[in-house]
Nucleic acid binder design. Structure first.
Lengths: 292, 292
DNA sequence: GAGTAAGATTCAGAGAAACTAAATTATTGA
DNA sequence: TCAATAATTTAGTTTCTCTGAATCTTACTC
């Protein structure tokens, strides 16, 4: 009893030896299969036998075979080796990013237009990846990222530097001005009034700056975070708007631009927390999001 | 890929550490539970993490906890530890003789009379013991023992020394002479004719020697290996016989002895193969058979 | 039978792994 | 700031495990 205070400290290596000798005709062959010398195999199996505490092998002529009672141990060995193989596969998938969890947050334009197909095909290529998508305005996304509720964000680049995050440029998106039917034509001084994103919105900041440069007044009569709502407001004649081309001109009845050149560019960036431990699953998704 | 040519060489010890830290609030407590220092636990888990190749732990304040993704590894660890515990129990049973296989051969008198209760209670005390009983004449039993078809034999001691077997005296059984009704009474010279065991029987040898010493002729008119058959032959008046008391005088109508003192003693011995590897299950049964 | 080859084990030594004890770092709370 | 707690790092020792060489045993061949 004193020689087995706890559990026998078997190693996967030893169990592998056991499985190998059961499968191979000779020990030399088994040794070759697991890639060690016959000597190592002998010693390893002797150690296994010692730790189990029950005789497992016997010599028949110049072969040594398993004793019948070793069948129990062999079955155990097979189970553990198989499970360890599964574990190794799982670990490999985790290491390469083929499996894992990524909590992705994007603004609507990215999820619906720019990277919709990218996300879809990445998900298809990695069926074991647990991908959770949150769609929200840029500010909310960055807050969630900093708190640790998200792993990866695609949003409009914030105007102020933010501590603790790394950003990579993903794409630059032109913002065009759109007017209700029949209202276009005058100089910028006569444009408006406007329907646009709420105060605090990153995109609104870009729009305000662009209009100011052109000398257009920026009187806001309605707000929404949803570009399709803003588009319908323009169509209803409530006011003018500056919108991403992809969202203003999508659908059966696209709005018409007030002028050919954009009012401004909004920079969409891929963002991660600086301090976060490296995670191949996040890396992989970030890469495809950047490269498109 | 080059760092994992085969399988990660995890040890049961490491998996035990993993299970312990999952169950205990702190690492120090886990270390105490498995009976090592906190340092050993730290190093062992670091090694496990390195071999799996996936980060498993993270520090929260001054505690280090399992990361969520370690759940897979923990499940694996629990399975393997549990199975190893089962294996250890099985091995312990084998070591002590509580489990295993014993192929026992005995002559009929032993199985039916002298050691019937011994075998029954031994079997009851060791439910996991696979006990196989063969009943045959002594000669057959010893042949089977030498060939390896039996592990343990209880039979009449052979008159000649036999190479390769170890015998221990179990009990000495008196053999008495019995005559058909009304035939008893005369001097030994007038005894007979006889019904007895076949030529070659160990018991027949003992009987022949005993009768010769008394001066009785040994004319044989019928033979059988079965004592109950011999007893019935006596009852039918076919001849006299010399039988073990236990078999001649059992049942509702016991035979009557010709004289009070036995004709001879047959020595029943417990026999094992000399070269056989030690087997606690066989040892255990041999012990109770000898001591009765 | 001697000679030889195959299968396996034993031995000695080198390198890796794992443990303990002590020193160190980091965090929490008074 | 001080002390206590949790864990890790470091240094040194012991234990494992492997390779390569030598040995032992068994089977086969001439």
């Amino acid at each position: 009893m004193a020689d087995t205070p706890t559990l026998p400290n078997l190693t996967v290596q030893q169990l592998e030896y056991m499985v190998a000798v059961a499968a191979a005709p000779t020990r030399a062959a088994a040794a070759a299969r697991v890639g060690v010398t016959a000597s190592a195999l002998t010693q390893g199996l002797a150690e296994l036998e010692r730790r189990v505490g029950v005789p497992l092998f016997e010599r028949h002529g110049r072969l040594t075979r398993l004793r019948p009672q070793a069948a129990e141990v062999l079955a155990h060995a097979r189970r553990v080796v198989a499970e360890t193989r599964d574990l190794a596969r799982w670990a490999e998938a985790r290491r390469t990013g083929a499996a894992g969890t990524v909590r992705l947050g994007t603004i609507d334009a990215v999820a619906i237009h720019h990277r919709a197909e990218t996300v879809r095909s990445h998900r298809r290529a990695h069926p074991d990846l647990d991908l959770r998508l949150t769609v929200a305005p840029s500010g909310s996304l960055l807050d969630a990222l900093q708190v640790g509720d998200l792993d990866l964000v695609v949003c409009v680049e914030p105007s102020d530097f933010i501590e603790g995050i790394d950003t990579i440029l993903c794409l630059e998106e032109p913002l065009h001005a759109y007017a209700p039917d029949g209202a276009a034509g005058g100089p910028p001084e006569e444009w408006g009034p406007w329907v646009t994103y709420p105060t605090g919105s990153h995109t609104r900041g870009v729009i305000a700056a662009g209009l100011t440069v052109l000398g257009a007044p920026f009187e806001v009569v309605a707000e929404s975070n949803q570009p399709d709502v803003l588009r319908e407001m323009v169509r209803l004649g409530m006011g003018w708007s500056v919108l991403p081309e992809a969202q203003a001109e999508a659908g059966p009845e696209p709005l018409a631009r007030v002028r050919r050149r954009p009012i401004g560019l909004r920079r969409l960036v891929v963002v991660r927390r600086s301090g976060a431990p490296p995670d191949p699953a996040v890396d992989g998704l970030a890469n495809v999001l950047v490269s498109g």
